[in-house]
Amino acid sequence: MAWLVLVISGMLEAVWATALGKSEGFSKLAPSIVFVVSLLASMAGLAWAMRTLPVGTSYAVWVGIGATLTVAYAMATGSEAISVIKVLLLLGLIGCIIGLKLAH
């Protein structure tokens, strides 16, 4: 169960990171609210998962999922350029996240 919560928390990290960018320095209300709510949920899930999973592994998986999804969303929406090297590096990051799960 902790792994599922950790993955969902990592996904929420991508939500709050994207909302932070769209809030334009907290000058837009809706993205600012999405940022705060998803940040709190993401941190709560990470903290809960860390009760049973190692801190280093939990944090690395959480950040890796969040970073991967944030960049993938930016590329999918056209706000960040797509390149072969970026896609390969993201796939490598996903491979490392899977590796951490398998090594646990």
Rank of each mutant, 00 (worst) to 15 (best):
G21P: 08
T57D: 09
C96N: 01
A74K: 07
K101W: 08
A19I: 00
S42T: 03
K22P: 00
L88W: 12
S32E: 10
T77Q: 10
A17D: 04
L90D: 05
S9L: 08
A76C: 09
G78N: 13
W62Q: 08
A17L: 10
A60D: 04
A41T: 01
G92W: 08
G92F: 06
I82P: 02
V61Y: 07
W62G: 06
W62F: 14
W48S: 06
M1S: 14
L40C: 13
L39A: 05
L88Q: 05
L88Y: 09
L29Y: 01
L102W: 06
L20G: 02
V5P: 05
A14G: 05
S9Q: 04
Y59C: 06
V5N: 05
W62H: 06
K86G: 12
E13A: 13
Y73D: 01
M11C: 15
M1Q: 10
V87Q: 12
A49Y: 02
A103T: 10
L93N: 08
V84G: 04
L53T: 06
G66P: 02
T18S: 12
L40E: 01
V63E: 09
L88V: 15
V36W: 07
V7T: 14
V55Q: 09
V63G: 02
T18E: 04
A81R: 12
F35P: 02
G64A: 13
A19S: 07
T18N: 12
M75D: 09
L91M: 14
A44F: 13
S83M: 08
M50H: 01
L46I: 02
T68G: 13
L20C: 07
V55D: 04
T77P: 04
S32Q: 07
L6C: 12
S58I: 11
L20Y: 06
I8T: 14
H104K: 05
M11L: 15
M1Y: 10
A44D: 07
A30N: 01
V87R: 06
S23A: 10
